[in-house]
Nucleic acid binder design. Structure first.
Length: 225
DNA sequence: CGACAACCTTCTGA
DNA sequence: ATCAGAAGGTTGT
């Protein structure tokens, strides 16, 4: 995707301990702080607001808009970015030249950004294709297929790293994207209670079928190009 | 370093 | 209809 890093940071800031529908709603609230670009196809388009604009928002305003405890993260991260050498925008894109570990560490200095969100930002906007965000779903996948001996344990930061390493060992330099495919398959929105044959859903018809889970849907490394 | 509660709010599954 | 638990975690103790 190579998303714009500023957008990416604030979008994933909204994602912690949250569900997709609400995340989308919150992101659209953030967008509304940017300048209106126009409308097309029934959608309104906005320039994503600048770091300066985001830093100027009152935390209470975001709370009122339904951000919950993430309101202070948005304002806090905007302000923290302003304080980075050369400004937040430049600082973020400079991370593209760094090692993954250093990128994660740097991003984790922002309030509300932990290892998982940092990995998402690194993968989706900072060219770190081997960044593997380990969340509750990926943890389930890992303990089911890759590291069954870890089943039942709680997901500690150290174990996060082991899971990420296991994904890289299996899928190679694009492990982050493999993770993304597996992650989406794990979402409850992609599943249904009955069904059994693993047939792909009909295009256009909202027929959902549950994938039969026997082995990892993706086997072997991802080919280069 | 690991475990654990707290945190806002909405949606889901039983 | 209702309600505990989960939801693309992070932070402080």
């Amino acid at each position: 995707m190579r998303q714009d890093p500023v957008e990416c940071v604030f979008q994933f800031l909204c994602s912690s301990n949250n569900n997709i529908k609400r995340i989308e709603k919150m992101v659209s609230v953030l967008e509304s702080y940017g300048s209106h670009l126009g409308s097309a196809g029934g959608f309104e388009f906005y320039q994503f607001p600048s770091i300066e604009r985001l830093a100027s928002i009152a935390e209470t305003e975001l709370r009122q808009a339904g951000f919950g405890y993430r309101a202070k993260y948005v304002v806090g991260t905007a302000k923290a970015l302003q304080g980075k050498p050369g400004g937040g925008e430049k600082w973020l894109s400079s991370l593209r030249q760094m090692e993954l570990g250093a990128v994660i560490d740097a991003l984790c200095t922002l309030p509300g950004v932990g290892p998982k969100v940092a990995a998402c930002i690194a993968l989706f906007s900072l060219d770190q294709h081997h960044a593997v965000p380990v969340d509750t779903h990926v943890w389930k996948i890992a303990t089911r297929y890759l590291m069954p001996e870890l089943g039942g344990m709680s997901l500690t930061p150290k174990l996060c790293n082991r899971v990420a390493e296991a994904f890289v060992a299996k899928y190679g330099k694009y492990a982050g994207w493999a993770q993304n495919v597996l992650f989406i398959g794990e979402l409850s929105s992609q599943k249904v209670p009955s069904a059994v044959d693993g047939t792909a859903p009909h295009a256009g018809k909202a027929v959902k079928r549950k994938r039969v889970k026997k082995d990892l849907p993706i086997s072997g490394g991802i080919e280069e190009k």
